[in-house]
Design a protein around this nucleic acid. Structure first.
Lengths: 188, 188
DNA sequence: GTCTATAATCTGATAGAC
DNA sequence: GTCTATCAGATTATAGAC
């Protein structure tokens, strides 16, 4: 309704990037306001519940963005094996290209806050559920039996998230590529 | 050489537990000294390089502990498929039993520090390499071709680490159990 | 080796003028 | 909606007595 929601948008986008890259506790409110260009005073106007609320909305933004990426990636082939492999390889390439300017979606926030903030944990949980269901949907559309597709969706999501973590630590995308390579064994 | 290295030991053990559970930035030096019972003044005597050094040695302790657990677990069966499945199920049971009093080995520290501390990142990297090679060794002993065994070691490690992360966030061990279930497809 | 006190800096959060 | 100033508490780290 109001004029420009610009400041709020910028705050969430900046927070989203920094939380993924540095984690929850390492990212200060000062840094977020400073890098977003938004005035610090306006943070608590837009997010009365402070850092926790900002993090929840950041996770939600990331979730929407990544889910869309997964769905678009999976649409590049009708064959689920090929589609999932293509998606993972895309992630690996992006990882190599942007080096570490992107971080791993959700993971750091999930690890750091699951024990100390129930609403934040719940946000991360529904993020992962959304990722999983994208894979599961693809498999169901390809004729996989429903329960099997659900189980595979969870496993594929775990594999990718784990490979991201190891790739990030190792500084190379090899684990992601090897996971992609094993997808046929898993799905056949 | 000196009398009791007790205080140093306690500091590392406490730090190790807290870093896994809460992550690097959320764990303060005050909390570590307080919970370890060691005097705060002695921290910088034993660890002149401060928090970073303490974290590196904590990661090393965790690495040794977890590696031993993996190796012992894998020795419970000569069949690699069964052995790996047993190990993952053990982890899942322990996860359920101790709920969240244990955290995920290495992961939080790896995510939080890989970009800000090269020595700490390197410690986490060699941790993961050690985990991987335990799986790889088991596969080679069972007759898998060396390169294939190495690739599978990396993928299995990624799967487990990812499933841990998702299980932790979800609050239930289902992802770990589903990963165990898919091991036969992967290894056959 | 231990302990206390404290420095210097950062954090999240608030109050109030504009 | 914006901006400044500031609070109380946390952080890592150091200095120096014991």
């Amino acid at each position: 309704m109001s004029g420009k929601e610009n400041s709020r948008e910028r705050l969430i986008k900046t927070a989203s990037r920094l939380f993924q890259l540095q984690g929850y506790h390492a990212t200060g409110l000062n840094q977020i306001t400073k890098e977003s260009g938004a005035p610090k005073g306006s943070l608590y106007y837009h997010f009365p519940d402070g850092k926790e609320q900002l993090a929840i909305e950041s996770v939600q933004l990331t979730t929407a963005f990544v889910s869309k990426q997964i769905e678009e990636g999976l649409n590049k082939s009708t064959d689920p094996i090929e589609a999932i492999q293509l998606f993972i390889k895309d992630m690996a390439e992006r990882f190599e290209r942007e080096s570490c300017t992107v971080g791993i979606p959700i993971a750091a926030v999930a690890l750091e806050t699951s024990l100390i903030s129930e609403p934040l944990r719940a946000s991360c949980q529904s993020a992962y559920q959304k990722f999983q269901s994208a894979f599961t949907e693809k498999l169901i559309q390809s004729g996989y039996e429903e329960k099997h597709a659900m189980e595979l969706g969870i496993v594929i999501n775990s594999m990718i998230e784990g490979a991201f973590l190891i790739s990030f630590t190792m500084g190379k995308s090899e684990p992601l590529l090897l996971v992609a390579k094993q997808i046929p064994s898993l799905l056949k």
